[in-house]
Design a protein around this nucleic acid. Sequence first.
RNA 1: GUUCCAGUAGCUCAGCUGGAUAGAGCAAUGCCCUUCUAAGGCAUCGGUCCGGGGUUCGAAUCCCUGCUGGGACACCA
Length: 573
Amino acid sequence: MSFIKEKEKFIENKLNELGYLNESVQILPSSKKELGDFQINTAMMLAKKYHKNPMEIAKEITSCLDLEFVNVNIANPGFINFSFQDESLLNYLNNGILNFQNLFDKHPEKLIFLDYGGANAAKALHVGHMRSANIGEALRRLCNLLGYKTISDVHLGDLGRQAGMLISEIKLRNPNLAFFDENYQGEYEKVNYTSKDLGEMYVAANIAANKDPKRMEEVREITAAIDSGNKRYLALWRQLVDISCVEIKKVYDELNCHFDLFEGELDSFKDIPAMLEVVNPFLYESNGAMVMDVKLETDTKEVPPLIVIKKDGATIYATRDLATIYSREKRFHPDEIWYVVDSRQGLYFEQVFRASYKAGLVNDKIKLLHLGFGTINGSDGKPYKTRDGGVMELGSLIDLIGIEIEAKIKEEIQENREEIKNKLTIATLKFADLMSNRQTDYIFDPVKFSSFDGKTGPYILYTSVRLKSILNKSEATNYQITTINNQEMKNIFLKILEISNVLNRSFQDKSLNYITDFLFDLASLFNKFYNNYHILTEPDIKIKNSYLGMTKLVSNVISNLLNVLAIDEVDKM
RNA sequence: GUUCCAGUAGCUCAGCUGGAUAGAGCAAUGCCCUUCUAAGGCAUCGGUCCGGGGUUCGAAUCCCUGCUGGGACACCA
């Protein structure tokens, strides 16, 4: 158990003895440092609830604190401030050097299924995909750290109109391919496209179809044909999906994303009949389509019915998502399923989740969550585009930042230069992406992000390199902090005590900005210390060893938290 | 039109479920490298927390209301 948690429990027990039953206590860093390192505001909350004088309750609480609490004082109208004995802190922190896991609290074991990534087959990944990937991957790692089991699925968008688009374009360009011969019976040849070709053809088809209604009609027909299982088109489409997956996997690899399952909408196809059997009793016909009511009496807003089958009899994304939920429940029995998808799909997921519960595709105990995220905008506040107004592909974006980064790596570093560049580039992007609260939009500014002054990924990595460099030069092998020698050191330790709280909040909000903030604060505090004290030349051996122990501790903490964010460290930069 | 979410320093954003004097980064100005990576550190400047009511010991945070911006509102995903 973390130190803070242990002390909170201690106070909660004392409150029980005083007759304040089942109250929870939060120990927070004090906002008035001159009054103590920590504060609790419990007395004022209890005062309201029990109609008593907060000062009196504060006195009751402070009178039962033990000797580990020092410098205890009460301030109007009922703030309790205190600090902890250095020995207690050091005892705990030294355990943290040996094992990072000692610094925070484990959660109850559950299985969480995460759906993130969401790349579209045959279309290049763009900036929006990056956010889903970064947030999803970091959440997966956070879950694992806290003791949850996880399954991640990229859930490709590999069915739908882009299939029709692409095939119509191929048909136009190579009408003689066997896929377009209704009478062809033999094996289908391997097509010879690169994922770049696919991207280019998709764009061409999209433009043409938007201009020409006849072309759009053809796209619709092909899409519908695939939907109803047309073998020729499906054979071609599966090949195209495989081609584009090569590129997609490469990018996810660069982003350190790990997917336990690399499934997609195509895979949900086989589950549709079984799903429809369950949902069928709830369906009714409306304007030709088969829909399901999902509104509730408690709604203050209008929640339209969910379309499950289109009027042409074809499936729609909702059909596939319902089938996927059904299949996930059957195969894995997760306690929760998280969807890391753009906030704009909020209403849609609300409908799908309601439909799932209502029809009994999943039991009521399973938690279905849509973790929406804000859009990535350009400096004009509109969705991020390239300079000429096109869609910014993720790959080009990574290259763009990479060039800036390359120029800043020290010239004398030649060994692994490419690898260092790549890691710094991803660190830059990820840190910027995870830094803003998950739910809010943010402005993507390549110039700002690659400048890496201030609160950035490279700043954290720079600090981590510093820490490692010191540890290497010291040649220390075991680490023990025996004294808190100055305020800068104390501040670092107090910050580290916040880890458990930071991880919990991050988990609760499903937002990584608490972790990026913490990393920045901790790195800043260490850099401050670094500028004021010289570790390796410290003459007092006891103090020097404590400095080294602290350096090791900070290094461990930063490494572990960067790992949660799926950011790799470097040895030099 | 209905509904949801935003509005905090010149700019970009935090703000721990109501706590004490509202915080960072960038930008601006001035310092600190013969010392463990100066991609660093220190200092200064910068605020009617969109406006107006209310709730209470206490509001950027909760409620009401107005203004501004953005999203969503059935056969795209």
